[in-house]
Design a protein around this nucleic acid. Structure first.
Lengths: 219, 219
DNA sequence: AAAATTATTTAAGCTTACTTAAATTTTTAA
DNA sequence: TTAAAAATTTAAGTAAGCTTAAATAATTTT
């Protein structure tokens, strides 16, 4: 499968999984930086290959085959991120950028080698789950967005769901890192901000960030 | 630059460097598995980009710019081979196969990270020199093809110049490995075969192999 | 040195993955 | 509920990187 197709099914998969907007061609086009027309064309083509269901003006839905494809690409992406993060001194943004390219030129054979080398990890450095070789995600995700946490409780960071360099720079600067502990000291519901304590520093995050930082309550 | 262009300049570079046949479109086409017409088209296009010199019916010659491009791709290829060989249990053929894909999706940034991690190696697992970040090969190659060695002398293997699985399988089976020591016990000049002693085994190699196994005399 | 062979080039055409512009449908707002 | 806005689709066109077939030039053989 071509890089264009892999990116297309990946975008649908991620949109379905994480985003609130619908899975119509326009939204996928926006994420891929292509025209709506191109997205419609691609959708029609992939429908003939039984990769997704396409009906005029309706949302795009991956078939089982399409979902497998998407998960296979996601697996390679997250394995690369894990490997690059472990081996080299690279930021979350950098590992993402490189993995975005490498994922399409990685055989299943090599992906398995990487996975094995890393001890078949279940999560990447962003806290995102890594599908296994069969395209299954076996972990269950109990984490919640920081926006939905409760004042006074303690949490550990489980996912940093972003591709954005500025966000990751901010995270690195403030110790916001997969596995680290934070205390939610105040929720400003009206202003949609959250105050947290991390590494003895108090910082206030707005919703742009509290919606993409996921945490688990500590027991 | 596209994968097609990178492979094209790489093929010219390798042809000039290693092979005896001329660098006309037909030979490049053969190596890339494309038609002669496609090779001619590509050559004309690259000439307009100052990547190579093209004159009807003449050999293709890389410009300085084109040579730099080729060396940059070769560098990435050989760095990937070195990394995969060190980290995973993969054969010479397997690391080649995977590197052939990864090389085109590797930023200079990542290539430098890999090089640094490996201690800026000067040779890859085949014994081929790795160009530095400036596209220079700083080592000088004093090795000779096994076909041109002298009876009774002892050599160490310095390069296994092939992409072929069967050849590498043969090498692995017989201890023909970068750095290993062999004794040339007999040259059958008439029949173009060479008898060597390796790991206490005597084997006779024909010219297909003695032309691509390079060695250095031991002092 | 002419004929035969081989290689290169030109020409026309194909597929993939896009584009822009116009037409159509759906959704939103008045 | 109708008009306006927004999104989707269709249509036509482009560039890259190929193909095959035919024309042309170079090379080899006799």
């Amino acid at each position: 499968m071509s890089t264009a197709i892999e990116n297309f099914v990946k975008a649908i998969y991620k949109n379905e999984k994480n985003d609130s907007d619908d899975t119509k061609p326009g939204n996928i086009a926006k994420k891929l930086g292509i025209s709506n027309a191109a997205a419609t064309d691609m959708a029609k083509k992939l429908a003939t290959k039984d990769i997704l269901h396409y009906e005029k003006y309706q949302e795009l839905k991956l078939t089982e085959k399409g979902t497998k494809m998407a998960l296979n690409v996601v697996r390679k992406h997250r394995l690369w991120e894990s490997l690059l993060f472990r081996m080299f001194d690279m930021s979350l943004h950098e590992i993402h950028r490189e993995s975005e390219l490498l994922e399409h030129q990685t055989s299943d054979f090599l992906a398995n080698k990487i996975s094995e080398y890393l001890g078949n990890p279940k999560f990447d450095p962003h806290g995102d789950p890594i599908p296994n070789a069969q395209g299954e995600i076996t972990t269950k995700d109990t984490s919640v967005a920081l926006a939905n946490t409760q004042e006074g409780k303690t949490y550990t960071i489980s996912r940093l769901m972003s591709d954005d360099k500025e966000f990751f720079d901010f995270c690195a600067l403030n110790g916001l890192k997969y596995g680290n502990t934070i205390v939610v000291t105040k929720q400003f519901s009206k202003n949609k901000m959250t105050q947290i304590l991390i590494n003895n520093n108090t910082i206030i995050l707005n919703q742009d960030f509290t919606n993409i930082i996921y945490v688990n309550e500590t027991n």
